[in-house]
Simulated assay, not measured.
Amino acid sequence: MKPLLEVDQLRVSFRTYGGEVQAVRGVSFSVKEGATLAIVGESGCGKSVTARALMGMIPPRTGQVKGGSIRFRGRELTGLTKLEWQQVRGSQIGMIFQDPMTSLNPTMKIGQQIAEGLIKHRKHTKTEAKEETLKLLERVGIPEAARRFEQYPHELSGGMRQRVGIAMALACQPQLVIADEPTTALDVTIQAQILRLMKELQEQLHTSIILITHDLGVVAEVADHVAVMYAGVVVESGPVGEIFDNPRHPYTQGLLQSVPRLDAGKKERLIPIEGTPPDLFRPPAGCPFAARCRFAMEICLEHMPQSNSFFNQHEASCWLNDPRARGVEAWMVARRETHG
């Protein structure tokens, strides 16, 4: 069965006074029906830009999809007109934004904001849209739905607003939902509730999810596959268990070492990733992580590594996975010490 979404060598750049920022530099991944793909990486790696490209939301005055392919159910999305994108957004691909306070319209009642998509995409009457909206509010766990329907975003808590955002994303029953850091602005208890809600709704509706996050705890809880991004490229991808248990890229290992583990059995020292990401005005010729990698070799600085395939659709782009690589023995020892 073909994937629901196929992204191949996607490139996105932005024009600034300082020059061209190459924010996404050849990203490839796919999403199966009913599956959850987590895209992880530190701030500025290109996660959110990738998500906005999938929604056709790159601002044309400053940004541009420079190349690559986005195929949804076999249909090429790059090059769609503004009107064609409006028909795709909401009805086929929905999005849950990071901060619902800024993504919701502060001048409109929340019921109107949800009903708007039902009227536009599903051709409901106002009465039908209101009935469906009340059902959606109840479905996402908002009590007293009729009263909440008449309230404005500022009258709701952060957790309630995020539930409204989920209801809006699911209103037209899209086959794919992109969740851009949906729990970042919430406290831990509400985060757990939102993640549980997303998982339950996915099982009920058989919706595919792309989860944009930097929180590996969230990834472990909800994702099936993981794509690790760094400096605008995917450096490693594969099933969540493979990525956590057998990382094949030093950046992935660094992310895992910087997060506390509950199963460690003893106090462990968290190891930060030293240095800063490269300048995407002038991306490096070789591996973008080379300047921060303690295992870097001369070839890492000069040539971009090709992707290597391992067990169970696990892939990584790192010269250390080449058996001819010097320093590969130290790298293997470090991986064993960290992950057993």
Score class of each variant (00 low, 15 high):
R324P: 01
I209T: 05
R248W: 01
V218F: 02
G165A: 00
L80E: 01
L256F: 07
Q87K: 15
L255V: 07
G74K: 08
G79R: 04
Q9S: 13
Q173F: 02
T338F: 14
S258I: 02
R261N: 06
A220G: 14
G44P: 00
G217H: 06
T107I: 13
M95A: 06
F149T: 01
A296H: 01
A51T: 02
G275A: 09
Y230T: 05
R147T: 10
A192L: 14
M168S: 08
K123Q: 09
I273D: 03
P239S: 13
Q173L: 12
S91W: 00
S237P: 00
Q64H: 11
Y251N: 06
T189M: 12
A290C: 10
A38L: 05
R139L: 15
R269D: 04
P305Q: 03
S157W: 10
E150R: 14
L201P: 00
I58E: 05
Q193I: 11
V40R: 03
Q98K: 12
Q257F: 05
I114F: 13
E84A: 15
A316Y: 04
T16Y: 06
M57Y: 06
D187C: 11
L37A: 08
S28F: 05
L4W: 07
M108I: 02
S237T: 10
S237I: 06
I93D: 03
K109H: 09
I166A: 07
A167R: 07
V240H: 08
C293K: 09
I114N: 01
G26V: 08
K135Y: 13
Y152N: 04
N312M: 11
K130I: 10
H121L: 06
R71S: 11
V27K: 07
R139W: 11
Q113L: 09
R71L: 15
L10R: 02
G90M: 10
L270I: 11
L137R: 02
